[in-house]
Design a protein around this nucleic acid. Structure first.
Length: 491
RNA sequence: CGGGGCGUAGCGUAGCCCGGUUAUCGCGCCACAUUUGGGAUGUGGAGGUCGCAAGUUCGAAUCUUGCCGCCCCGACCA
């Protein structure tokens, strides 16, 4: 098997696939459009999930779990919602198989047809709001702050590892509030949590903003999002937080009695991030040697590789490494000692580079004599001799350093790829060049946005938060505009 | 669903146009030996419904027809 990873500038799609498959994160599966997340990839997801979960709980949310199946009639209760999802639903129509009477295997039993078909959830608003109806009676029941970790299914035409798979893992928060303001505050709070997670943990700079009407979630009043920039100049929506207004409360008749015993519909939010974040991580940081994972979420932060000629040398090294391991673990560093004998050091070096392990420590008898080890960083590929005295502390500092270095590098790239377009010609030229975010004036109409998409495949990624108001003219229509918005081609 | 490409061992492939002994090569796998500071070397070995089906033929991986599957590019989308 080829060990080489395709070069980024040669074939970006192949580069991306190579990183995931050769980095050991995931594989294609026997089921069309679905992937197998391998242990290493799942460990990465668990680290991300655990951190997000902590952030949700720190802001008063609780986890719960709702059914995988949604009765078809639920989905149609909110008009915009069904409109948005109808085209990509997997549907359960029968509940039993039987032996084929004509021989040759097994067939669906036509006798076992469901009276009402079940939809495999593409998102859970409907089943959850159907439940909330029974949970919410009074202002005392509010706010209701629930999150669920789940899998969902969206039957997309074309799939792509992590970025768009038929089934994917995610979390979806669904909250209910007594006032519109409180719900909006919640929406913004969760957006901020996503941004904080992306930047502080994934080392991926994001732009916070609000979607235009065209890009809004089906059934939302407002969709807030974080947008990241990938190395090929395309944008990626990394997380969304929706202010749902009273749409779902009205569709599912969820009313509460306030202090004055006046009935009103509750105000809702929903917000989610998915395993797509892993795809974002891969495209944001990796190079042609493999993955580069930020230390804070890397499944293995440090790998130790022994270099020895015989058993005697090996046992000396083992003894020293045992001390390191204790010290590392005391500092909470995720460390792996790879003393397997069936691959040689050079193989292991390449292997852990492909897997994106931030720090590699090589240790041989030569080092033991000098009381040093060789420390190699994945992010900048430098190697240095480091004293074994206080090694764990040195490495701990180094991991923080790597974390911020990865972030700064991604931020520099992102900042260098935000352009201002003043005219249509300029706009098109920028898109066909390096891509990136293009800040341009827009007249605020859906028609213009659609026309631009049709002509260039670029969409409005967001209207940035705290956007400066600025008089100008729309790059497409020439009509007056009050602010710039961010355009990009996107995943 | 439209356009393009591909299906031969676990992976990657040659052979196909122009049909002909036992289907090529590399990686990986197994055994032994020598090795181990950047993807080791040697020797020996195991592993195949040539995507499926039908047809043409003395003979099909190769030709014909149908079907299935996958990848890439579009439309759709987190």
């Amino acid at each position: 098997m080829s060990k080489e990873i395709t070069a980024r500038d040669k074939d970006y799609s192949q580069w991306y696939n190579d990183l995931i498959i050769k980095g050991g994160l995931a594989d294609y599966s026997a089921v069309r459009g679905c992937m197998v997340i391998k242990p290493y990839g799942y460990a990465l997801w668990e680290n991300m999930r655990d951190q997000l979960d902590k952030m949700f709980k720190d802001t008063g949310h609780q986890n719960a779990y709702f059914p995988l199946f949604i009765p078809k009639s639920f989905l149609s209760k909110e008009a915009a919602h069904v409109e948005g999802f109808a085209k990509e639903c997997a549907v359960v129509t029968h509940y039993r198989l039987k032996n084929d009477p004509d021989g040759g295997g097994i067939v669906v039993d036509p006798e076992a047809k469901l009276d009402e078909e079940l939809i495999v959830r593409p998102t859970s608003e409907t089943i959850i709001w159907n439940t909330y109806k029974t949970w919410i009676k009074s202002y005392r029941d509010l706010p209701l702050l629930i999150n669920q970790w789940a899998n969902v299914v969206r039957w997309e035409m074309r799939t792509r590892l992590f970025l768009r798979t038929t089934e994917f893992l995610w979390q979806e928060g669904h909250t209910a509030h007594a006032t519109a303001q409180e719900a909006v505050d919640e929406t913004i709070q969760m957006l901020n949590i996503y941004a904080e997670f992306a930047e502080d943990y994934m080392a991926m700079p994001v732009i916070k903003g609000v979607k235009s009407a065209n890009e809004r979630f089906a059934g939302a009043e407002d969709t807030y999002c974080i947008e990241a920039l990938m190395q090929d100049g395309k944008a990626l929506q990394a997380g969304t937080s929706h202010f749902l207004g009273q749409n779902f409360a009205k569709a599912f008749d969820v009313q509460f009695a306030d202090k004055q015993n006046k009935l009103d519909y509750v105000w809702a939010t929903s917000w989610g991030v998915s395993t797509r974040l892993i795809g974002a991580l891969v495209m944001a940081h990796s190079d042609d040697e493999g993955l580069i994972l930020p230390p804070k979420i890397a499944p293995i932060q440090v790998v130790i590789i022994p270099i020895f000629k015989d058993e005697e040398q090996k046992s000396k090294i083992d003894e020293k490494v045992k001390e390191f391991m204790t010290q590392f673990k005391a500092l909470g560093i995720r460390v792996k000692y790879d003393d397997s004998d069936h691959t040689r050091p050079g193989w292991k070096f390449a292997e852990y580079e492909m897997k994106g392990v931030p720090v590699r420590i090589a240790i041989g008898v030569r080092d033991l004599e000098k009381n040093v080890v060789e420390v190699a960083r994945r992010d900048d590929k430098t190697k240095t001799q480091v004293s074994v005295d206080g090694l764990a502390t040195t490495i701990s500092v180094l991991l923080n350093d790597i974390q911020s270095n990865i972030y700064n590098k991604a931020k520099l790239f992102r900042d260098n790829n935000i352009y201002k377009a003043e005219s249509w010609e300029e706009f098109e030229k920028m898109l066909d060049g390096k891509g990136g975010f293009i800040s341009a004036h827009w007249d605020g109409t859906s028609e213009t946005e659609e026309k631009i998409k049709e002509l260039t495949k670029a969409t409005i990624r967001c209207i940035p938060q705290n956007n400066m108001l600025e008089e100008g003219i729309c790059i497409y229509s020439g009509k007056p505009s009050t602010q710039r918005v961010l355009f990009a081609r996107a995943y």
